[in-house]
Design a protein around this nucleic acid. Structure first.
Lengths: 407, 407
DNA sequence: GAGGATTCTTCAGTCACTAAACAAAGAAAG
DNA sequence: CTTTCTTTGTTTAGTGACTGAAGAATCCTC
C-alpha cells in the first residue's frame, strides 16, 4: 500500500493538467493532496505547464498562518480545438478553447448527396473560415473532432479531412461526444459515473464510468434505443418487439402526431412533403412548440414518450449504477422541459440504489450544440488527458508462439 | 506515441503474472510482444517470479530457426485462496489454487439466527478444517473472500472473521464474484467485456468491462432484477411495475407453480410448509426436475421465465456492448439447459451490435459453486493483479483550499 | 523584528525501464 | 564437423520520473 506512486511522464503531466481544469482553480498544495505526489514533483510539473503557457498563476489564497498558496488556473486561451457535428441535414462547426467554451460557431448545410471529395473540400474551407473568424493561429489548434450518429461509416471521410485541413482528426459518435462535452465542461464531477441521454432523431446514451469514457469493444455501448419495454409491443427493425425507439423515439412521436389530423393542422406539420432528411426533426420541433402553446394532444404525445424514456433511463441507471444523468441533444434542447420532470420522478421513485445515492437528472445547458462541443472536447481530452493507463493485454496471447515441446 | 512505457514495479510484476495465468503457457518473447516491454525487463521480472515460486519453466517450443523458446507456466500450487459463499440456508467453502481450480470444498448449514460471534467462531473452525483437509501451509494462503447477496450487511462480519482466521478478508456480492471467477478460470479472454448472469433466488449480473471488474460507485452495478419489461405489469417492491424479478425470477416461477394444484402435486412442492429461507430454492429445483421428467406445465413456466430473462439479457448486452454472457449461479446450475437456448436465440436475433460482433452465450461449467470459487478468485486477483492504475482524482478538489484572494 | 507556520524550490539519491552489447542454443550450409 | 546465421535470453550502463530532506521564501503573530 505504501511506497512510491510512480507513473509515466506523460500521464503525470496530463493528470495534473486535468486536475487544474477540473478544479477550475487550485494551488500546488491542493495538487499534492489530490495526486498523492510530493511537493517537489508538483513543483517541476507545474513549472513545465507554466512554461508551455497552459497554466497560469492567478492570485493567492488567504494565509492559513504561513505563506499564502499561489492559485493556478488553466490558461483557457492557450490552445483550441475544432468540433464538427455531421447531422443528416446540417453540419455544425464550433471552435472551443481549453475550457470547452465556444469561441466561434457556424452551421452550414449538410452533405446531401454530393461527392465525398467535394464535401471534404467544402468542410475544410468552412473550418478555415471558422478559425479565421476569431484570428487564432493554426499551431495553437490541437485537432478536429468529427462526430455523427454512425462514425464507423466516416473513417475515410475523417482521413480525407485530416489531409485537407492539416489537423489531426478523431472520430466518435454523437452521444459519446455529448457525454465527454458535459464531463469536460465541468458540470459533473471529475470521477463521477454518469450518462448523457442523447435525443436527436434517434436515441442513444454516452457513458462515462468513474471519469473514464466507456465505449465498449465495438463502440456500441450505451445503445438504449432497443431496450424492450413491452415484449408484445410493435415490431422493430432490430428484430425484436416493443423497443424504446419504436414506442417513444422522435420518429414515433412524429408518426403518431401525423396520424392525428387536428394536431397535424394545429402544429403545421410538414408531413412527407419536404425532402427525406429533415422532416422528423422539423416536425418534432413543431410538436414541441404546439405543446408549449398549450396543445393538449401534443403535450400528451410528448409525455407518453417521456414516460417510456424514463423507464429506459432507470434501466440504464440501475445497470450502470449512475450518479448523474444529463439530457442532451437537439430534441431535448426543444422538448427538455417536458421530459425532465417525468424522468426525475421516475428515477426518484424506483431507482434501486437510491438508498446509497440518488440519481441527479439535469438538462444540458447547451443541448443543441452538445455534439459539436463534445467533438471538440474529445480532441482536448485525447491531447491533454492520460492516454490509456495500464498495458495492452491482447486476447490472442498464444498467437505467434511456435508449437510447444513439453519437457 | 513513442518513448518509454513506464509503470510501477507492482503493476508490471502483476501484469506479467496475469499474462502468464491468462495465456496458460507463454515464453519470455511472448511476454515481450504482449506487454511492449523490452526483453531485459521481462528477463528480470520473470526471474523474480521464478524465485518466488509463482512461475516455473515447463518445456520448450520448437525452434523457428534459432534458440528454442523456454515456456513459462503459472505454478498453480504456489499459493491458495479461500472462498466462502454465505447463502440464506447454506455456507459453502472452497479452497482454490492459483489457477482458480478447487482443491477442497465443503458445505455446511447457514447461520440461521445464531449470534454473530458464534457463527464467526464456527466459520473459523470450518475454514481450518477445509485447509487441514489438504494439508496446505497457512502462509501460502493469500486470503479469504466472503461473498453474499448483500455484502454491505457483512462488514463487521468480515472483520470478525479476519481476526478469527488471521487471513485477510475481502467482501463482494455473489454476482460480481461469479463473474470474476469465470474471468480468472480463463473461460473468457483476458480483455473481454462480459457479464455473468447470476440466478440464485434473486437475479443479478456481475460485470467485467475490458478485463476490469465494474462495480459502480455504490457497488450496485449490474442490477437487472428491476429492468422494466411491461410498463403496465404487476407492482414490484421497488416501486415500479413489470420488473424482471416479479415477472420471471425464481420466486415468481415458484409462486406460479404453487398456484397450480396439479403441478404442485406432480413436482412435490414444499409450499409454505418448511422454514422461510429454503423453500424457494428447493421448489425451484423441484420444478426443474419436473420439467426434465417431461412435465409440460413445469417446462412452460420455466420457458416463460427464460423469455423474459432473455429480453433483459439483451438489454444488458446492448447497453454494455457485451461480447460474452455466462449463465451462472445455483438456479442456472439446475435449470440452465432450459434457459440457455432461449437466451441464445434472443441474442442472436436482436442484439443490436451483432453486425460488429456476436454475443456468445455460455453456461458456466461450475454454476453451482461459482460464487464461492469467485470469492477465492477475488482474493487471487486482489493480491496478484494490478491495483488501480492511474491516480485517484477526488471529486471535492477544491476542498481544503483556503478562501481565494484573486490578484 | 524575532519566531513560528506554511508554501514552494532545489538537489542528491532511488528505482523501473530502455538500449545495446553479449552469451547461449539451435538451424542451415559447406 | 565447422562455419555462419538466426533467435532467445542476460547483463550492464544510462535515463528519467519520482521521493525525501534540506533550504529559501513568504506571511502571520506577538
Amino acid at each position: 500500500m505504501s511506497g512510491p506512486a510512480r507513473m509515466t511522464h506523460a500521464s503525470t503531466r496530463a493528470a495534473v493538467l486535468d486536475l487544474v481544469r477540473a478544479a477550475g482553480m487550485i494551488s500546488r498544495v491542493g495538487l499534492v493532496n489530490a495526486t498523492g505526489l510530493t511537493g517537489g514533483t508538483i513543483s517541476t510539473v507545474v513549472r513545465g505547464l507554466i512554461d508551455e503557457g497552459l497554466v497560469a498563476e492567478t492570485g493567492h489564497a488567504e494565509s492559513t498562518g504561513g505563506k499564502r498558496r499561489v492559485m493556478l488556473q488553466l490558461n483557457h486561451f492557450a490552445r483550441y480545438a475544432v468540433g464538427v457535428h455531421l447531422d443528416e441535414a446540417r453540419i455544425t462547426y464550433v471552435l472551443t478553447n481549453l475550457g470547452g467554451a465556444v469561441v466561434a460557431r457556424i452551421s452550414r448545410a449538410g452533405s446531401g448527396d454530393a461527392e465525398v471529395s467535394d464535401v471534404v473540400a467544402r468542410m475544410a474551407r468552412e473550418v478555415d473560415a471558422l478559425i479565421d473568424s476569431v484570428g487564432v493561429e493554426r499551431d495553437r489548434i490541437l485537432g478536429l473532432g468529427l462526430v455523427s450518429a454512425r462514425p464507423s461509416e466516416h473513417h475515410e471521410f475523417g482521413q480525407a479531412l485530416e489531409r485537407a485541413t492539416g489537423l489531426p482528426v478523431v472520430l466518435d459518435n454523437d452521444a459519446t461526444a455529448a457525454a465527454i462535452g458535459e464531463h469536460w465542461s465541468g458540470g459533473v464531477g471529475a470521477t463521477s459515473t454518469f450518462a448523457a441521454l442523447y435525443l436527436g432523431t434517434g436515441i442513444g446514451a454516452g457513458v462515462v464510468l468513474g471519469g473514464t469514457t466507456y465505449r465498449g469493444p465495438s463502440g456500441h455501448a450505451g445503445e438504449i434505443g432497443h431496450l424492450c419495454l413491452d415484449v408484445d409491443g410493435p415490431e422493430c427493425r432490430c428484430g425484436a418487439r416493443g423497443c424504446l425507439e419504436v414506442l417513444a423515439g422522435p420518429g414515433a412521436v412524429v408518426a403518431q402526431a401525423r396520424a392525428d389530423r387536428a394536431l397535424s393542422r394545429a402544429a403545421g406539420l410538414a408531413g412527407g412533403r419536404t425532402r427525406a432528411a429533415a422532416p422528423v426533426a422539423a416536425d418534432f420541433a413543431a410538436i414541441s412548440r404546439a405543446a408549449r402553446r398549450g396543445n393538449a394532444r401534443a403535450l400528451a404525445l410528448l409525455e407518453r414518450s417521456a414516460r417510456y424514456l424514463a423507464v429506459s433511463a432507470r434501466a440504464l441507471a440501475n445497470v450502470l449504477d449512475l450518479e448523474v444523468l444529463v439530457l442532451t441533444g437537439p430534441s431535448f434542447a426543444i422538448a427538455g422541459s417536458v421530459y425532465l420532470p417525468v424522468l426525475r420522478a421516475e428515477l426518484d421513485r424506483a431507482f434501486i440504489a437510491r438508498a446509497a445515492h440518488p440519481v441527479s437528472v439535469r438538462l444540458s445547458p447547451s443541448a443543441a450544440s452538445a455534439p459539436a462541443i463534445g467533438a471538440a472536447a474529445i480532441v482536448l481530452q485525447s491531447e491533454l488527458v492520460p492516454r490509456q493507463t495500464g498495458m495492452r493485454l491482447p486476447d490472442d496471447l498464444a498467437a505467434g508462439e511456435p508449437p510447444v515441446f513439453v519437457r
